[in-house]
């Protein structure tokens, strides 16, 4: 059963477990590839995670002159192939969400690969496996559909894509509280 990463952004409590977990994924070489932001840092404590959304038409891969960014058969957009990346940093400029990181010493781009060693076998990525607040979940499309029924939005807004995102993505993002008009934390 194909599962996908599903984000309920406003659940985030800012513990940054996902960053720590990311460093521990096999082959991430102890460097995390995801982000957690304060939404309004001077006023309240609401945070939201941001990670690669694994675009269906990834700008990073389209802009890469070396074809170093491969798309896995699961749809995951992989980190740069170590022998191909020529260090031009086009991908960091192209990504609409500013996700790829660049290591100047190694002349190499690295980004979220959705823990491909795990997700290719259907195991959840590291970040989702540690998230204590159900912000990051690893769900089948059916489970995501059930959530949709549970929230019963009448404003037609559900799993967000446009206008919140720039294109269709393999990772699904949602803000059920905000979209329903139920203020949870902020």
């Amino acid at each position: 059963m194909k599962k996908r990463l599903y984000l309920e952004l406003e659940n985030c409590i800012g513990c940054r477990s996902c960053l720590a977990a990311c460093t521990q994924c096999g082959g991430h070489e102890e460097r995390n590839r995801n982000y957690v932001y304060d939404v309004n840092p001077l006023v309240n404590r609401q945070t939201m995670p941001l990670m690669c959304l694994h675009c269906e038409n990834p700008a990073c891969a389209r802009s890469c002159p070396a074809q170093a960014i491969q798309i896995h058969e699961t749809g995951a957009v992989l980190s740069a192939l170590v022998e191909k990346c020529i260090g031009c940093q086009n991908c960091t400029i192209a990504c609409p969400y500013g996700i790829p990181k660049f290591d100047h010493e190694q002349n190499l781009m690295y980004k979220c690969d959705l823990c491909i060693d795990r997700t290719k076998d259907g195991i959840s990525p590291m970040c989702a496996s540690v998230c204590p607040s159900n912000t990051l979940q690893w769900l089948t499309d059916e489970e995501i559909d059930n959530k949709k029924k549970q929230f019963n939005l009448d404003n037609g807004k559900w799993v967000t894509s446009m206008p919140y995102l720039e294109g269709e993505t393999n990772v699904k993002v949602n803000l059920p509280g905000i979209l329903q008009g139920i203020t949870k934390l902020f």
Binding site: L9, E10, Y35, Y37, D38, V39, N40, Q46, M48, L50, C95, P96, Y97, G98, I99, T160, P163, Y164, L165, V173, L175, I178, F186
Partner: peptide, 16 residues
């Protein structure tokens, strides 16, 4: 960093 915060702003509705 601004591009990432800009995305958070699109999600939250607050200009992070």
């Amino acid at each position: 960093p601004c591009r990432r915060k800009y995305r958070i702003a699109q999600f939250s509705g607050f200009p992070t």
